[in-house]
Each structure stands twice: as structure tokens, then as C-alpha cells.
Design a protein around this nucleic acid. Structure first.
Lengths: 143, 143
DNA sequence: CTTAATGCAAAATCTTTGCATGAAC
DNA sequence: GTTCATGCAAAGATTTTGCATTAAG
């Protein structure tokens, strides 16, 4: 090996397309939906490649990953200033970044108080946005 | 209907066993692990029944559910004073309930400010406890 | 006796892997 | 010319559903 030891990235049309589609989709999107969008756009790419590319992006820390209520992984390009938390509409998928400073501080304090190390936190907020509040009344808030 | 309108609960040995095993396991446990434990204990119960019972408990709000990194659902009997948040050790599974009042308040305010309704929140904290901090250095904090 | 619960096997998902072909360096 | 990426099909894994049998009210 005479070049980049680790970091063997190889730019291919498929990877570029996945990245572009990922950024085009606003909010979180599943691997399958992303693949469908790509195919619909006329891009020739296999579902396998979409999964593999997303896994690479995840490993490299370039996407945030959450899970929906079915356990499906949803991806979103990470805003370049670190990780964020989102409030996602269960009905239309609208996702808004929320100010999570308080939570960040809370996590830091908990970590120190309890004596844990390398604490990761995941905060997922789902609700129903104003626009979608028209004719539905199943889930109640569980707070 | 002359009795309990909804709430058609039918106490069976299997359901009792699932509940007992769930309480016996300290910390979060998967449906499959729970089933394995039951079978190992000599209880005759099908995996299907375990899943169905856990789903009922979840609907009734009697268990907290989180997902591990493989997307597997993990269940834990809910302490009878509402829902809680836990800090779980990635190494040994030790789980501690943490004071989450601040987060609850934060969620309430976000909900009001942004104009969302029926907001659910999931907060998952994972780290490494003091006891396990002896020889391991893979995941870094992502905060 | 009527209604619901059980459990096996099969189905339905989402995701990963084996392997031959084709593209990138 | 090597080495890595692609993509199909098949395998893996977790959870749900169909349906006949059994148990509870």
C-alpha cells in the first residue's frame, strides 16, 4: 500500500447519486424510500448499493440515524456542526430541528453525576404538526 | 356488554409467566431472550405468545420499550409512576433510572412553542459504567 | 356453550452476504 | 492489470398473521 492507508474511497456515479438524493430528500428517509426515489429518477442503482453507501456514511459520521416505530432505519445528512435533534411529524414526515441545548447540558450532568463514561444519547420526538391536525385521534401523548 | 367494556383481559398461566419473567430479568430484555428464559425455566410457552403478551403490555403502557443497535426491541416493566428514562451500560447492561424532569419540561415547552400535538419522546442514554471501565476503547462519545 | 388464547408453521419486513461481472485506479 | 464497487439472488433475523386446537368465563 503506497497511498491512503484507510480511506479507500472510490467516487462512483452511484455513490454520488445516493448522496445527492439523500440531500434532496428533506427530513429523514429510509434506505428503501431512497432507492425508490433514485429509481424513479432514472438512476440505475441497486438496493444493495444504497444500503452499503448509507452504512459507509454512517460509519464516517456523515448521517444521523433514527428508527421509526417499525424499527426501520431513517437517514438524514448530518448538518456539519455536529449532531442535532428533530421533531418529526408522524403524519406527513415534516421534520424540524429543535434547540436541544438543555438536553445536551442535562446529559452532560447526568453523565458526571452517575459516573458513566462515553455516554451516547438519542432523543427522538414525534408528534402531529398543525397542518396534519385534521381528522385523526389514535395515539395519545405518552409523556 | 355487561362488564368491562374494553379490558378483556384473560389471566392465563402463560401471561403470568411472561410477566414474572419480565420482572425477574433486571434491566431490558428482548422478546426472544425472554422466551428462551421461560423455556429454560421449564415453562411451556410459544414465542408467538411472548410477542403477543409484550405487545399488549406495551399498548397498556406497562412496559418501556427501547431498541438496541440491531433494532431489536427490548422491554422492561415500567415502574408504576409513569414512564422513565434509563442510562444503560453498553458493556454489562446495568441500567439506572435517571431523573428526567428537565427533559420532560423541555419536551413540553418545545411542543408548545413549535405547535405540535401529541408529542411522544424517546430518550436513550448508553455509556460505560465505572465497573466496566477496564480495558476497552472502541466507541467514542458522539455528543 | 361462547369467546378468547395458544402455538405451530408460514408470511412479511428490513438488512446483510456470496459471488461473478464490470468499472476505477 | 489489480483492486474495489456493483447488483442479483439467496440467506439471516425479527416480528406478525392464519388457522385449528385448547382453555377460560
Amino acid at each position: 500500500m503506497h497511498e491512503t492507508a484507510r480511506g479507500e474511497w472510490r467516487p462512483t456515479p452511484q455513490r454520488a447519486a445516493v448522496l445527492e438524493a439523500l440531500r434532496a430528500a428533506d427530513g429523514f428517509i429510509s434506505a428503501q424510500a431512497l432507492h425508490a426515489a433514485l429509481v424513479a429518477d432514472g438512476v440505475t442503482v441497486g438496493l444493495t448499493t444504497v444500503y452499503r453507501t448509507l452504512r459507509l456514511l454512517e460509519t464516517a459520521g456523515h448521517v444521523d440515524v433514527v428508527r421509526d416505530s417499525d424499527g426501520e432505519r431513517l437517514y438524514r445528512p448530518r448538518p456539519d456542526d455536529g449532531h442535532r435533534h428533530y421533531l418529526v411529524c408522524r403524519e406527513c414526515g415534516l421534520s424540524l430541528a429543535v434547540d436541544a441545548e438543555e438536553v445536551e447540558r442535562w446529559v452532560t450532568r447526568i453523565q458526571r453525576d452517575i459516573g458513566f463514561h462515553a455516554v451516547n444519547h438519542t432523543v427522538e420526538l414525534t408528534g402531529v404538526c398543525d397542518g396534519c391536525l385534521s381528522g385523526q385521534a389514535d395515539r395519545r401523548p405518552d409523556s
